[in-house]
């Protein structure tokens, strides 16, 4: 009797699905409604600061307004820590061809407008996702400020990775 050839394919698919299911258990613990939406929809999150004082709040609002004024950008997340401001933005799909130019222009404009601040900007989905997760952590007032600062600097380091 010659064995049918279908079985290896079904076996393979079952193996793959079970691998994916197992690996999704390796996820980090800060998944909630906001982060699942992060990649798919326009979130429009309010800009946040880690230390929460009024001057900083106003500053980040201005930064957000400045970035949103660019028409290629459709979603921005701004987080200000002790020394850095992380600006994570999403570019409209067709305009992604000019990604590098947009990034250079944005960096120049922000440094001109707010010369005292140190900006880290990124159009990467991952950075955006992580900043959404960090904002949720900020809003959850239980977590101490040093941890939030550490997470922010980790995200900034991640955005500089090249390979």
């Amino acid at each position: 009797m010659v064995k049918k050839q279908i079985h290896p394919i079904i076996r393979l698919f079952l193996l793959l699905i079970s691998i994916f299911v197992i690996f999704s258990g390796c996820s980090t613990d800060d998944n909630n409604a906001n982060s699942t939406k992060a990649l798919i929809q326009t979130n429009n999150p309010p800009p946040s600061t880690i230390n929460g004082n009024e001057k900083d709040q106003k500053l980040v609002m201005d930064v957000k307004k400045k970035v949103m004024s660019k028409k290629e950008v459709y979603d921005v997340s701004v987080i200000k820590g002790e020394q850095d401001i992380l600006v994570a933005y999403k570019v409209r799909h067709l305009k992604r061809f000019r990604m590098k130019k947009i990034e250079a222009d944005l960096q120049k404009e922000l440094e001109k407008e707010f010369p005292d601040e140190k900006f880290t900007i990124s159009s990467d989905y991952k950075i955006f996702l992580e900043s959404i997760r960090l904002q949720d952590k900020i809003n959850n007032k239980q977590i101490p400020k040093e941890d939030l600062e550490k997470r922010l600097s980790e995200i900034i380091k991640l955005s500089n990775e090249k390979t």
Binding site: S24, S27, L39, K126, S159, K162, T163
Partner: peptide, 30 residues
């Protein structure tokens, strides 16, 4: 990108590795 600590830039490597792994399984199974 979602479940691990890869950015869009750095996720290229594990993605290609995974695709080649799948291609190896499919080739091996005929």
């Amino acid at each position: 990108i979602y479940f691990f600590n890869f950015t869009e830039q750095t996720a290229g490597n594990p993605t290609v590795a995974t695709l080649i792994f799948l291609s190896m399984l499919l080739t091996g199974f005929g």
